[in-house]
């Protein structure tokens, strides 16, 4: 790498006036400043929605209840050190095995290029509207409605998505975020809240 004349650095750091620089050094200063100016132009918003909308949607989603956290804690595997009589250890081992094996979910799906159909079904009697929001639509709550054509309280939607795993929640009446307890599996988000997961497999398989 070719070193720059120290006067170029000094001019860029405003330690000396650039007017006194030889033309070739002044050109180097101008070229770097022009590059910085070009890089300083604003970046247009992301096509999938503003960062603010995404972050605020994540913040507004309700925190899990204490009962739910307790249930999650009990169901999750934890390392525990106990001094215990051998006679009890067998029973404890069986109990620990039961607790740790219970939350084992589905295998991670293979991700392909093809699309599949995600079926969303939820029972919300008395709801005026139900939408699904998730990682497939940037958690925008009003874009994918579920329908209850026969008014029996069961809301449905079929959505074509590229094959893969997606986190989602239902949004009831535009404000109540509810996980789908019938989901393929659930995961915890950055806020410790439960997201449902739908696995979309290629329709061609």
């Amino acid at each position: 790498m070719k070193p720059i004349d120290p006067r170029v650095h000094q001019a860029l750091d405003r330690e000396i006036a650039r007017e006194g620089l030889p033309p070739e050094l002044a050109l180097q200063v101008a070229r770097l400043e022009a590059a910085a100016a070009v890089l300083g132009t604003a970046v247009s918003q992301w096509a999938g929605g503003s960062v603010e909308a995404r972050v605020m949607a994540a913040i507004r989603r309700p925190a899990p209840s204490r009962m739910w956290r307790l249930a999650r804690w009990l169901a999750a595997p934890h390392s525990v050190t106990l001094r215990i009589r051998p006679a009890w250890s067998l029973a404890l081992a069986a109990a620990v095995a039961l607790v740790t094996l219970l939350p084992a979910g589905d295998e991670t799906p293979s991700v392909g290029e093809q699309e599949g159909i995600a079926q969303f079904v939820a029972r919300f009697p008395g709801a005026n509207s139900v939408h699904v929001a998730g990682s497939f639509n940037d958690w925008r709550s009003g874009t994918i409605p579920l329908r209850d054509a026969d008014h029996d309280g069961v809301w449905r939607a079929a959505v074509v998505l590229p094959a893969g795993a997606y986190e989602y929640m239902f949004v009831v009446d535009g404000e109540r975020w509810v996980p789908d307890h019938l989901a393929d599996r659930t995961v915890e988000d950055d806020f410790g809240r439960e997201n449902s997961v739908v696995i979309v497999r290629p329709a061609a398989r």
């Binding site: 970046v43 096509a47 999938g48 960062v51 950055d190």
Partner: peptide
């Protein structure tokens, strides 16, 4: 990459909030 950058910034704000 603008899209990856938007993800990084959104994740950073969520982290900052937490």
């Amino acid at each position: 990459d603008r899209d990856v950058a938007a993800d990084a910034v959104a994740e950073s704000f969520i982290r900052a909030y937490r």
